[in-house]
Amino acid sequence: MLEDLLFQLELGLPQVVLGLVNGAFYALLSLGLAVIFGMLNVINFAHGAQFMMGAFVAWMLLNYGGIGYWPALILAPLIVGAFGVVLERTMISRLYKLDHLYGLLLTFGMALIIEGLFRNEFGSSGMPYSPPEILSGPPIDLGFMFLPKYRLWVVVAALVMSLTTWLVIEKTRLGAYLRAATENAALVQAFGVNVPRMVTLTYAAGVALAAFAGVLAAPIYSVNPQMGSSLIIVVFAVVVIGGMGSILGSVVTGFGLGLVEGLTKVVYPEASSTVIFVIMAIVLLARPAGLFGRA
């Protein structure tokens, strides 16, 4: 019985490794949500749409401008981040004095509008985007499986980006401003810090993280207007499990749940698409603030 299970696991190891790739996206997206929530107290429901925009901007840069993957990896987050600046300045910032719920409703509405506009323009069938040459070619032999180079790159890039974000927030002067403003924004501003500008840039940074994930995703998933909305539902579950607003929590939970999902595919495939929601329900009952959240 046990041997059976072990054998099954060994056969299934590739699935588990691939789960790590999904986990990379969960981690990056929930990280952006955590950054935004910590500072703005807004649950950014437009996050999935901004992820999708990142992929589309990379696609457009290539097809309209001849600009390839590597520049797009930097340009697309900047462009979508700038779009985030406009959204925050013109709309979201008007809602800070009201209940959180309004920010959530506003960003939810924006997500629907953005998706609708893209569907109108590009249709809902996916468009291909190939990985850069250096990351194509034959997969890497890990001994127990062949892993496409590009997927390995996604995991590494997400890890590096998560670690960098964590370091900036925990170890730098800018991060100290962010943490302090999360606790008491009025006082930080009364010390002479331009807090409204910091809030705008934080939103832009969170949005840029989503767009970065979108560019990473473009060669894996086909580029289509729905690619964000299907992923973001799972990401919100990840955020609930990790604890809203915790930076480290979102990264660890993101990768962890990707692994759990992969593992479930091996052991009990029927449950693989629901396992995260089951965990969410259990966490909500046992520890409503999330695994890493402060109650």
Partner: peptide
């Protein structure tokens, strides 16, 4: 003035 300007 805004508080950050007053501080400055």
């Amino acid at each position: 003035a805004r508080s950050d300007r007053i501080a400055r």
